[in-house]
Simulated scan of single mutants.
Amino acid sequence: MSGVSLRAEGIRVVVDGTELLSSVDLSAAPGRVHALIGPNGAGKSTLLAVLAGDRVPTAGRVLLDGRPITGLALGELARARAVLTQEHAVAFPFPSREIVAMGRHPWAPTTAADEDERAIAEAMTQTDVSHLAERTVPSLSGGERARVALARVLAQRTPVLLLDEPTAALDLRHQEDVLRLARARAAAGGTVVVVLHDLNLAAAYADDLTLLRGGGVHATGAPADVLTAEAIAEVYRQDVEVLPHPRTGVPLVLPVR
């Protein structure tokens, strides 16, 4: 799982004459959680799709372990990175366990397929969905569907994990669980990139932040360097106070009300 870096260089994305990303550079390293933050329409999900190889940029390139991502065969790409998108729609009433098992498909032609059952069971335990194994997806709540979808990408067991707003539909406990899992994956040597709206979650769990604004990089670096009251007010157009957490010292972002 360890040792695979992800780098974006000069990424530009134009759709129907609208520039969604402009000259974006980003580096995500093994052993670290890199969070993409920014207001709605800043380009976070577009950038994640480019990093995943699911969207071809208008200009620039993405390097996965030093290799252009566009040169990788689909199977090789699926064994290198797993992607959790915002949408968790499933067209057919599959049991939850079958959805999670789909994450093992890229490994079918390899000896790693011997680990399928263990990987599926472990991922379902980690995401607290083991008790939902036989429940069909249409019978699940939005939060339960989100956790089953996360279990699928965890079962894929790739060195790079890309998560688009994984906490959006979750309650407090499961939000924390998801980001603890992201931290654990990084601690095991994985490279994790996650899109987050909650700035306090980003500050608490990410090693590196990239703050996007209007399709460009406004700031990148450690949470304490990026999450300043001035930067947040400028990008989000909302006045805030930024205080150190009394126990951990990480930034706490409090809206001025």
Rank of each mutant, 00 (worst) to 15 (best):
G60E: 01
G60A: 02
G60L: 00
R61E: 13
R61N: 01
V62K: 09
V62F: 02
V62T: 12
V62E: 02
L63V: 12
L64S: 06
L64H: 09
L64D: 04
L64W: 11
D65W: 02
D65A: 13
G66P: 03
G66K: 01
G66V: 02
R67Y: 09
R67Q: 13
R67I: 08
P68L: 12
P68W: 07
P68Q: 05
P68V: 11
P68H: 07
I69C: 07
I69P: 03
I69D: 07
T70S: 15
T70N: 02
G71S: 14
L72K: 01
A73Q: 13
A73T: 14
L74R: 15
L74V: 15
G75V: 11
G75S: 11
G75Q: 09
G75N: 10
E76F: 00
L77P: 10
A78I: 13
A78L: 11
A78F: 11
R79M: 11
R79G: 10
R79P: 09
A80I: 02
A80V: 08
R81P: 10
R81W: 04
A82L: 02
A82V: 13
V83S: 08
V83D: 08
V83I: 13
L84D: 07
L84G: 03
L84Q: 08
T85L: 12
Q86D: 09
Q86S: 12
Q86W: 07
H88V: 15
H88L: 01
H88P: 00
H88K: 11
H88T: 15
A89M: 07
A89W: 12
A89F: 14
V90Y: 03
V90K: 03
A91F: 02
A91T: 13
A91E: 14
A91M: 00
F92P: 01
F92G: 00
P93M: 06
P93E: 07
P93N: 07
P93H: 06
P93A: 10
F94H: 13
P95I: 06
P95W: 05
P95L: 08
P95G: 09
P95H: 04
P95M: 03
P95V: 09
S96N: 04
R97N: 03
R97M: 04
E98A: 15
E98H: 12
E98W: 03
E98L: 13
E98S: 14
I99C: 06
I99H: 03
I99K: 04
I99Y: 06
I99P: 08
I99F: 08
V100Y: 00
V100K: 05
V100I: 05
V100M: 04
A101Q: 11
A101S: 14
G103D: 07
G103N: 04
G103E: 12
G103K: 09
